[in-house]
Nucleic acid binder design. Structure first.
Lengths: 352, 352
DNA sequence: GGCAGCATAGTTAACGTTTTCTACAGGAAG
DNA sequence: CTTCCTGTAGAAAACGTTAACTATGCTGCC
């Protein structure tokens, strides 16, 4: 009885039979890690072509080989910044003949864990996590730590990108971009232009990126001796709609501020929309600053003053580190990079 | 001898030993498709929790079960439109407790085939391909047809989204959005506003989406009796930079046109940039129209007149069709949906 | 000429599940 | 008191690879 035989694709055994050799020989031809005679090699190759054979990943993985696949996990593909980073990963992976897969967590940590888990099981060569983490719990950290260890012991690597490290003894690579300093620099810029009442549109309250940017903003206020009672901070999400709504609310309330520092360029786009609705001109009536420097920043009118983050390079570097096998070596202790950010002055902030 | 034991995660056998039952019983508890005594069930569940066990996907797949994973393959994550579609897929998948994975082909058909192949081997529950196809060769079609059949016979499904069907006898679902009519409508709009010399910025010459949009444009010209010698068509890629450069070249050449119809909103953003550089005001000096209606269209100034395509819904629908199991039934002949598009009039096109 | 060593090839045991098939109780029915 | 279910459990055979062992001719050397 043929059992169920859901797929009818030829197996390695089929190829072996067709070529008149043993399965082992076929495997060897494929792997190329063992001497095979010229004639056998040719016959096998011909059979493979004729049968249109392709190896079963699962069987391979089960037998212990790593797949040449790298995974990239982010919250939402719709964000330009992380999409750029994803592209960087993809580039570097392709350059080395690897495939890359993207998974999205929608900001849900359970989903994120499930994805990392899935990738570990798929025997991905590396897993890159990008973006801040929300509401990090002890349980989450523990599970992620386990996964990092498990990944590492399987010859793979977990790379954390733009998020807090898990701990010194956890085998991960960490790549950060400077949220705190970037925000500090931008707020300093706004202050230097004479602005004193700056509305800060943060992201979710307990999201690490948001927390860091807010903290940089506050430190600048403190250093410049500008009072900061927290009433000019608003928490939302990293979308255009959120920026629009938050600004509108404040405007309706008749709140007094001369500048808005949006935690993200897309949020800034929302600010522009709200300002336009109230007949306010940027930058004369209202200064607006963003963060990320995505393509959109150049399409907004006036062009948006923002903080540049090299997302694509970030992604490329993450992939490079992940794919370089130095971390396989016994004495490897972890890798840590910090990408710097800088203010890009355009036309959305005027001198007061 | 313990062989290599690369990963130290607990196996089903470990759980069985811990719970004092046979592996089969553990499997049954997990699958829930066979009667298991109350006590055994409880012990197994407890062991699973205590050992933090999770099943190995590969072994599962090898034993013939499908994974609850859906794959979405596109050319480039950086494009807003397809990112929106990806989000739609993700939403629908998540709603049903499935995970979704995104792969990018970078417009390379070999890479695309490799991804579909990979997903087939991973036993994905469905594979959705979105976006036009470039330079479609007979060999490509043959291979994709094979993959579609193979996917289908494994109880999975290939969904083609916004690309030409493979043929009536190939078991795929096809979802299209109307490129030809959308472009026809937009060009009609431009013509009705008095424009006669319209520069059309197409995508790659042999890319299906580009071809369809161009064809709609041309049909409108024909219907309105406007001469069309092909000199007002320019081929590029779907990026801002391409739109910028192409427009700039024409402007430098002193070409005579009153409107630009960009095959994509981001391309239109590039047109805006070039126009600004030459001191041309949109829409007074130059009318600009786009296609896709992504968020950017509302952030450009003046706001961009464009053709709306319901990308997110497209993605959601694709996932729905893919995950609905009706196509498993014997008499299933294929599914075909067509999403309509419509012109969204904003402020970038003036009456001549 | 016997024998170590080498170049190939084949055998077979993993890898971690699922799923038959078989087995064995205990209770109902005759 | 048999006999036959019925509810549960275990043994074992897949699934398609890889890699560690064996096995077998040869070649070349003492």
């Amino acid at each position: 009885m043929a059992k169920r035989k859901t797929t009818n694709s030829p197996t390695l055994a089929d190829v072996a039979a067709h070529a008149g050799v043993s399965p082992a020989t076929v495997s060897r031809v494929l792997a190329g890690n063992y001497p095979v005679s010229r004639s056998a090699n040719q016959r096998v190759m011909r059979s493979i072509r004729e049968l249109n054979y392709s190896a079963n990943t699962h069987a391979r993985a089960l037998a212990g080989v790593q797949s040449k696949t790298i995974a990239f996990i982010l919250a939402d593909v719709r964000g330009q910044s992380f999409a750029d980073a994803a592209h960087g990963v993809e580039q570097e992976a392709a350059r080395r003949g690897w495939l890359s897969l993207i998974g999205t967590s929608q900001g849900d940590s359970a989903r994120e864990l499930a994805l990392v888990q899935l990738m570990r099981e798929q025997r991905a060569g590396a897993v890159i996590l990008i973006g801040g983490v929300t509401n990090e719990s002890a349980e989450y950290r523990a599970k992620m730590t386990d996964l990092a260890r498990s990944l590492h012991s399987a010859g793979s690597l977990l790379v954390l990108c733009g998020r807090p490290p898990l701990g010194d003894d956890v085998p991960t690579a960490v790549i950060e971009y400077d949220n705190e300093h970037g925000a500090y620099a931008m707020t300093s810029h706004l202050l230097s232009q004479g602005h004193r009442r700056i509305l800060f549109l943060a992201g979710p309250e307990r999201q690490s990126t948001s927390v860091q940017r807010l903290s940089g903003h506050r430190r600048a206020l403190l250093d410049f001796g500008v009072p900061d009672d927290g009433t000019l901070v608003e928490h939302g999400v990293f979308t255009r709609a959120s920026g629009y709504q938050l600004t509108k609310n404040r405007l309706i309330a008749g709140q007094d501020f001369t500048a808005v520092f949006a935690a993200t360029d897309v949020v800034a786009a929302g600010v522009y929309a709200a300002a336009a609705e109230f007949g306010l001109n940027v930058p004369e009536d209202l200064a607006v600053a963003g963060y990320d420097d995505v393509e959109l920043a150049q399409d907004l009118r006036p062009r948006l003053t923002t903080v540049h983050v090299p997302y694509e390079e970030l992604g490329r570097t993450a992939a490079k580190i992940a794919l370089d096998s130095q971390h396989q070596q016994p004495g490897w202790t972890g890798d840590h990079r910090l990408f710097t950010t800088h203010v890009v002055v355009r036309n959305s902030v005027g001198r007061l």
